[in-house]
Design a protein around this nucleic acid. Structure first.
Length: 554
RNA sequence: UGGCGCGUGGCUCAACGGUAGAGCACCUGACUCUGGAUCAGGGGGUUCCAGGUUCGAAUCCUGGCGCGCCAGCCA
């Protein structure tokens, strides 16, 4: 499925066609202050996708300029997530911190050129001097310090002579600019904190604005693609590039970040969900993080397909989660092995089946993929079927099992229910059925065609398991709209089922593989799963038109 | 309010001066040993509004309106 074009692709293609560049160089620049989420996946697919399409390359560059928020755990997780998504940065793994010395040198360059100065104003005072959206700012009293004094102060900032916040280095641009980002933006701040990579080598750190474009220049990035909120920074990006002796001139392009219904894509909020215990971790299957989606069973190919499907534009937008789910189902439908699992088991005894007789049935692994082969499943006198697949008094349009009714057990036999055994509270405990020996494999010689085909598991062979059902993390499409984000959490986002009965082959499902439990949905072994204590996560249900029919009838 | 940007079916995107299309969602039908796969069809758009330019405007111009972003020593 060829990816649809988009305005950034068009720009790159035009640049190549016009000979402005040979091949594009892009970069994915996460800050290691949290885990990557599906919104980052959109950016990753865009950056790596464009590079690959035009024969260029994409760097993985950590924007690690703020040591108080960044951690090694995040660095590691981000690498793993990008790789899992299917992208390869080759040897091009970089860190803004790799460039700290060069960046500092350029800061000195700016000072010498009279284009930067050390400001002694406090953060509050700087804010006051900055003006507002409608009023121009005022010059800092320290704005006209001599080059010599600025050089001296900057060196002493670096040497650690001053406390956090005591001074900053600022670009000298225009305090009256209508673009507030040009009102002498801060380039360096004093932060006595040790950095995950540079340790205590530095106590001053460059701001995003001073680090990003210059890092792009150092790496020869041609197209620096970021999200819309950086649009107002572009004049500053260009100003710095124009005023520094950089080896290359990169350009910044902005696109609209991803928003999804029924969830939230903000690292700040995701971190709170984790820290406040609303979920069990960054990789909780309900999280929209890459690691959460992976644990949930979403295949990387599904996420890539989703990214290709939604396109890239400059319009703020909110994608319906259904679209992500569609992409994932479409991948899983053609790749997932089919298995039998009974979530809510109801015992069926086949009264005309000999006590100890076991037959084996050959069952197709994936009707969408003949190459997936077949497997052997045991069939015996006692079986488990889904409780939902039986109704003592069937309502109209319910075609499954009911007293006196015949259904097909998938790939096995036709069975007819003769007796309903109930417990004390009137709960159905067991169904007593007969089977038709002539229907082995699921076809009858007389052409009878039951209206329903049920999945089943041999009770003598079934493997018990825990299954975790997942639903949207938030119970409204636009969580937090009323200002109470956490009140919008979906209390039913996770439902734990015990005593689920699985066909034995499921015990060997490798981690990371998502299978289909026929008629129910897609499931994957959870990281908590152990031999003898299996745990499966429900990735997604199948599209359920029966549920739709029911909803209408109700 | 100053600056920058964005407005095309319910949602996401195409159409780049020449008959407004696609995917998702929705509805209907066919088919089926997953009621769920799959296939086929259908409904749904004054292209934010108003002027202007043009033989012709979603597209160009002007003016409105609406929405987003920017006043961190976050990114």
């Amino acid at each position: 499925m060829p990816e649809r074009s988009n305005f950034i692709r068009d720009i790159v293609a035009a640049d190549v066609a016009a000979g402005r560049i040979e091949v594009p160089v892009t970069r994915f620049p996460p800050e290691p202050n949290g885990y990557l989420h599906i919104g980052h996946a959109k950016s990753i697919c865009l950056n790596f996708g464009i590079a690959a399409e035009f024969g260029g390359h994409c760097n993985l560059r950590f924007d690690d300029t703020n040591p108080v928020k960044e951690e090694q755990e995040y660095l590691d997780a981000i690498e793993a997530d990008v790789r899992w998504l299917g992208f390869d940065w080759g040897g091009n793994l970089f860190h803004a911190s790799d460039y700290f010395e060069q960046l500092y040198g350029w800061a000195v360059h700016l000072v010498k050129a009279g284009r930067a100065y050390v400001d002694d104003l406090s953060a509050d005072e700087i804010r006051e001097h900055r003006g507002t959206l409608t009023e121009p700012g005022r010059d800092s009293p320290y704005r006209d310090r001599s080059v010599a004094e600025n050089l001296d102060l900057l060196a002493r900032m670096r040497a650690g002579e001053f406390e956090n916040g005591a001074r900053v280095l600022r670009a000298k641009i225009d305090m009256a600019s209508p673009n507030i980002n040009l009102r002498d933006p801060v380039l360096y701040r004093i932060v006595h904190a040790s950095h995950p990579r540079t340790g205590d080598a530095w106590c001053i750190y460059p701001t995003y604005d001073f680090a990003h474009g210059q890092s792009d220049a150092i790496e020869g990035v041609t197209h620096s693609i970021c999200t819309l909120e950086f649009e107002v920074h572009r004049p500053l990006y260009d100003w710095l590039i124009a005023n520094l002796p950089v080896p290359h001139i990169p350009h910044q392009y902005e696109f609209a970040r991803l928003n999804l219904t029924h969830t939230v894509l903000s690292k700040r909020v995701l971190k709170r969900l984790v820290d406040d215990g609303h979920v069990r971790g960054w990789d909780d299957p309900r999280m929209p993080t890459i690691s959460g989606l992976r644990r949930r069973g979403f295949p990387a190919a599904g996420i890539r397909e989703f990214a290709a499907m939604i396109g890239v534009a400059r319009t703020d937008s909110v994608i319906e989660v259904g679209q992500l789910e569609h992409a994932v189902r479409s991948v899983l439908n053609r790749t997932a092995a089919r298995r039998f699992g009974v979530l809510d088991p109801l015992k069926v005894v086949i009264t005309n089946w000999p006590e100890d007789r076991i037959e084996t049935m050959e069952v197709v692994n994936n009707p969408e993929d003949p190459g997936a082969g077949t497997r052997i499943v045991e069939f015996g006198r006692e079986l488990w079927i889904e409780r939902d697949d039986f109704m003592e008094e069937p309502v109209p349009k319910f075609f499954r099992l009911a007293p006196g009714r015949e259904v097909r057990l998938r790939n096995a036999y036709f069975v007819t229910c003769h007796e309903v055994v109930k417990g004390d509270a009137g709960r159905v405990m067991e169904l007593r059925c007969s089977y038709d020996p002539l229907t082995r494999g699921g076809d009858s010689p007389d052409g009878r065609r039951p209206k329903a085909t049920l999945h089943w598991v041999s009770a003598a062979h079934a493997v018990p398991a825990e299954v975790r059902l997942y639903d949207h993390l938030f119970n409204r499409p636009d969580p937090g709209t009323d200002g109470h984000l956490f009140a919008d959490l979906n209390p039913a986002s996770e439902t734990i089922l015990n005593g689920v009965m699985l066909e034995p082959a499921l015990a060997d499902t490798p981690p990371g593989e998502t299978v289909q439990f026929e008629r129910l949905g897609y499931f994957t072994p959870d990281a908590d799963s152990r031999p003898g204590a299996l745990v499966f996560n429900r990735t997604l249900t199948l599209k359920d038109t029966w549920a739709k029919v029911q909803a209408k009838g109700g």
